[in-house]
Design a protein around this nucleic acid. Structure first.
Length: 423
RNA sequence: GGCAGGUUGCCCGAGCGGCCAAUGGGAGCGGACUGUAAAUCCGUCGGCUUUGCCUUCGAAGGUUCGAAUCCUUCACCUGCCA
């Protein structure tokens, strides 16, 4: 495996380094041999999300540049939970955590190469933590953590008012211990992660120095935010999950396609493997003709392919083209339409004793959360049946509305489609 | 430990016996404009078998024809004094 000497410059150009330890030292490490590095993922949910994806892709970049990944799943740290601003976490059971560990592991694996000279390794911090005695932990690890310094950490400081348990307060020791273990047993000398993990990451660097007198490197990727600075998916839609069960690939693709103009360049750099020249070209096109949304299209296609595969992405693109194409849905063949609607989300309904009302269908398809909301949507002029606005809150579709004899296209607002297959 | 104040819908925050499902702002949702963008403007924003009914104003009781609003107890939070 040959090393790519431009790696660090590329990472910086892509905006992936928000914080770091000595960059010159890191540069030297990157050019003098295959660096063993690690990045950790805590199983706090059944699926990873957009923020984790950035770490996975960054790990892949490093591996492609000749370095050796250790992907860590936090079977132990997931039992504890790292402190976050929104308050104390509720603990998950061992069974839940174990299940999530497996899911997370399977989500990471396709992105890394587990064969070859710089093959990736999967590790689980539960393996070296579960049997650790409290006495050993307190003597060997705890002794290196001055409480006054721990209290000064931003995440902890913000929690002192609202309260923080000893459990979460101790989290940094566990993550630091991970780095120390990987350093000792596998020669891992670099950790990176999201900028919200920076305190935990430097904790490990420091522990390696205090405990073993060793030198380790670290950097943190920036927090990905919307143009106005708020977090993605912080409110309504929830997180951007990688698991197709938790977020349909269609919805995933639509998310990237709808990214704000201001963010396109940044996201192309961080989330795609397009070359610098390719991205600069896309940015130029985008700056000149933003209405073409060439950047969004390239971004959505690329990232969806990475996560859900080329085949699925093609289906989604076809579905999007069909649904957003023009207006006359009856011109589409039932096959095309059915396929498109299945991508966007389809519900099957029994039509043997008449069709349900539009209100019921809006609720059934999940386009509206309640009948009240469905009625309101119609009142606001936001409900469409086969691309025709529904005016009457009591309206029901008739047999004549069925496209190809079995499909209804329901829409809420400009871009929320749902199919209804009548049987 | 003493004194004072607070706990309201997704969030912030009014209300202080009936006109309160509860002012206002933010988020969200819809419409207009556009490019399935941003900004802006407008509307909407607990549920239902929807001229009405049901469940909400920290928790539990109570007073009253009637309470988010008054009383009692409990829980938590915030100031001031020790």
């Amino acid at each position: 495996m040959t090393l790519d000497p431009t790696l660090l410059d590329d990472l910086q150009w892509r905006g992936l380094i928000a914080h770091s330890t000595d960059l010159d030292a890191l540069r030297e490490a990157f050019t003098s041999g295959s660096v063993r590095f690690y990045v950790g993922f805590d199983p706090t949910a059944p699926s990873l999300h957009m923020g984790n994806l950035l770490q996975i892709l960054t790990a892949r970049r490093l591996q492609q540049a000749g370095h050796t990944p250790y992907a860590l799943v936090g079977g132990a740290t997931g039992m504890i939970g790292d402190p976050r601003d929104s308050g104390e976490r509720s603990l998950n059971s061992l069974d839940t955590v174990k299940d999530w560990v497996e899911r997370v592991r399977r989500q990471i694996e396709p992105f890394l190469e587990f064969e070859g000279p710089n093959a990736a390794t999967m590790v689980n911090n539960y393996d070296w933590t579960a049997s650790l005695s409290v006495i050993d932990f307190l003597r060997d690890i705890g002794k290196h953590f001055p409480v006054n310094r721990m209290l000064a950490r931003e995440t902890v400081k913000r929690r002192l008012e609202s309260g923080i348990s000893y459990t979460e307060f101790s989290y940094v020791l566990l993550q630091s211990m991970d780095f120390l273990n990987l350093y000792r047993d596998h020669g891992v000398t670099l950790q990176f992660g999201g900028s919200d993990q920076w305190g935990n990451i430097t904790g490990g660097v420091e522990l390696i120095r205090r405990s073993d007198g060793g030198t380790a490197h670290a950097f943190a990727t920036p927090l990905v935010t919307k143009a106005d600075g708020t977090k993605y998916g912080k409110t309504e839609g929830g997180a951007l999950w990688l698991d197709p069960q938790m977020m349909s690939p269609y919805a995933f693709y639509q998310f990237w396609l709808n990214v704000e103009d201001e963010k396109v360049g940044e996201l192309l750099r961080a989330f795609t493997f397009f070359s610098r020249a390719e991205i600069e070209e896309l940015e130029a096109t985008h700056a000149e003709k933003p209405f073409l949304r060439a950047g969004q299209k390239a971004l959505a296609e690329h990232v969806t392919t990475l996560v859900h595969g080329a085949e699925e992405t093609e289906r989604i693109k076809a579905a999007s083209a069909a649904l957003f194409g023009g207006g006359d849905l009856s011109g589409l063949s039932p096959d095309t339409l059915g396929a498109a609607l299945r991508e966007a989300g389809a519900t099957t309904v029994d039509g043997s004793d008449g069709l349900p009302s539009v209100v019921d269908l809006l609720v059934e398809t999940g386009l509206a959360k309640s009948k009240g909301e469905a009625r309101r949507t119609i009142g606001e002029g936001g409900a469409y049946l086969n691309n025709n606005r529904v005016e009457d809150p009591e309206a029901s579709p008739s047999a004549a509305d069925l496209i190809g004899g079995s499909w209804l296209v329901l829409r809420r607002g400009k871009k929320n489609f749902a199919g209804v297959e009548v049987r």
